[in-house]
Write a protein that binds this DNA or RNA. Sequence first.
DNA 1: ACCTGAACACCGTTCAAGT
DNA 2: ACCTGAACACCGTTCAAGT
Lengths: 269, 269
Amino acid sequence: MTPTSPMDPSSDASDASIDARGTTSSPTTEVGAPTRPRPPAGRSALSRERIVDAAIRLIDTEGVAALTMRRLGAALDVEAMSLYRYVNGREDLLEAVVDALVDSIRIPAPGQLEPVDGWQAFLQWLAHDVRRLALEHPAAFPLIATRHPAAPWLRPPLRSLRVVEAFLEGLRARGFRDEQAVAAYRTFTSFLLGHLLLESAMQGAELSPAEEPLDEGDADLPNRDQDLDLTDFPALTRLRGQLTEDHTEEEFEAALEHLLVRLDLELAQ
Amino acid sequence: MTPTSPMDPSSDASDASIDARGTTSSPTTEVGAPTRPRPPAGRSALSRERIVDAAIRLIDTEGVAALTMRRLGAALDVEAMSLYRYVNGREDLLEAVVDALVDSIRIPAPGQLEPVDGWQAFLQWLAHDVRRLALEHPAAFPLIATRHPAAPWLRPPLRSLRVVEAFLEGLRARGFRDEQAVAAYRTFTSFLLGHLLLESAMQGAELSPAEEPLDEGDADLPNRDQDLDLTDFPALTRLRGQLTEDHTEEEFEAALEHLLVRLDLELAQ
DNA sequence: ACCTGAACACCGTTCAAGT
DNA sequence: ACCTGAACACCGTTCAAGT
C-alpha cells in the first residue's frame, strides 16, 4: 500500500490562484453576457473571484482577524463599500473563501489513477491532497473546520457537493456498496479533521493574536509564561523534549494506514 | 472492554459553574489577603472568575460572536471598561475561557477507577469526559480546538498542563513506557479533536451567523439553497437519507474502540 | 480599591449620490 | 453599471477622573 503522491499531471490552473467562483454557480446565470465594458484605468475591474482571491491571500499572510472589509478593499485599491456589490457581507465572504479552498481539492477521476490498489490508492491520494490544502493555508483551515456547513451531512473538511459526490462515486466504482461508502465518508472526514487541524494549528501559530508587550510587575494579573513553569509537573518536565518533537507527518501516515486497515476489515464483513 | 461512564461520585463543585481561576495561579500570589471589603450594594463584586463564568454562559447561549466586552459588561451590570481590571483584553478573556473549560476535565486518580481493564478503562473514561465537555459547550469547543496553545506540545483539546500531566502519569501507572505514553497522547488528541469538533459543529449550528433575510430575485448573486439543488449529483440524491442520519455517538464509540485496539498492538511491539 | 465618562481608532453596513 | 462619501451603530481599549 504505497502512498500515492497527489500530483496531477494535467493540472491546467495555475497553482497559486484558487478556483474561486460563486458558491453554487447555477447554469442559468450568465446566459448572454456579450459586451463587458473594459476597466477604465490602470487597475483591473473588481469581481467576486478577485475579491475572494485577495481575501485568501490576506488570510494567508496576516490571519483571519486581519481580514476586514476595509483592509480588503484597500488591498484591492477600492473603498470597502464597493465589495458589497459582489459579496453579501463579511459572513458571505468567509463562506466564499471556504468554498473556494475546498473546491481546490482535486479528486482523481476513474482511470486517472492506476487501477492497482483500488480504493486504498484513491483514499491515499485524496487524503494527501486535503493535507496539502491544510498546509498551504494553515490560517484558513480553521474556517474550513469550524464554520457550520450548508447541510448537516456536509462534514468538514470535505464540505462541498462536488467533493462528496466524487468521494462516494469514487468508492463505489472501486467496490464499495452505498452504505459502506457513507460509513467510510464519516470515518474519513473525522480522521482528516483531527489530524489536519492539529497540524495547521501548529503551523500557523504566530498569526492570530497581536503582539502583546508585557507590562512591568503588576502582581495581581496572572503571568504569561505558562510554558516555562513546570514545577509540580514531573512527567511534563521529564518528557518535554519528546513532546516538543514534531512527528505530525508520521502520525498522519500511520493513522491513515490504520484507517485503511479498519475500512478493509469493515468491507469484508 | 466496557465504556466506563464519567460520573464522579465525589464531585464537589456545582455542575453549572466552571472552575475558573487565572491561567497559571502562581502560588506566590494572594499571600496575605486578610480584609476583603464587601461589595457596596445589592449586586456582588466583580472578579476574574465571575467574568469568565459569565463569558462562558454568554458563549453557550448566544455564540462566540456575541461575546463582546460591552455586552459582557452589561450581563454583569457593569460598564465594559471595568472588565479590564481583571482581564487583559478580549484575547486574554478568550484564553481564560478555554482554560476554565479544559480545567473542568476530570481525570480519574489512581485507585479511583477499578483496576480491572487498566489503561483501556482510563482512556475510555477520559474520552467520554472530554466528549461531555464538547457537548455541554458546543459553541465554545471551536475555541478549544483552534486557538493556538501556550506550548506547541499542548495539543487541543487536552491543552492544559494539569490534564496532560495526569494523562501521561495515568498511562505510566497502568503499564505504559514514557515513549508509548507520548505516542498515545498524540493519537488520542487527534482522535478526540476530529470527532468532537464534528459533533459540536453539528450541535451548535444555529448560533454563529445572524438571521439572514433573503432578498427577492437578485439574479447576479448566487442563491443560498445549496442543500437543495442536487441535480448533477446522483450519489448525493440517492444517499441523502443515509447521509442525514446522525450516528455521531456510534462513530465515536467505534473509533475509540479501534484506537484502543491500535494502541494495544503498539504496546506489544 | 474599584468603577466610570469621555474619547479614540477601527469596524460592518446602508444609502443616496456621483461618474 | 460601477464606485464612493457620508453616516450610523457597534466595537476594543486607554486614561484621567470620580467615589
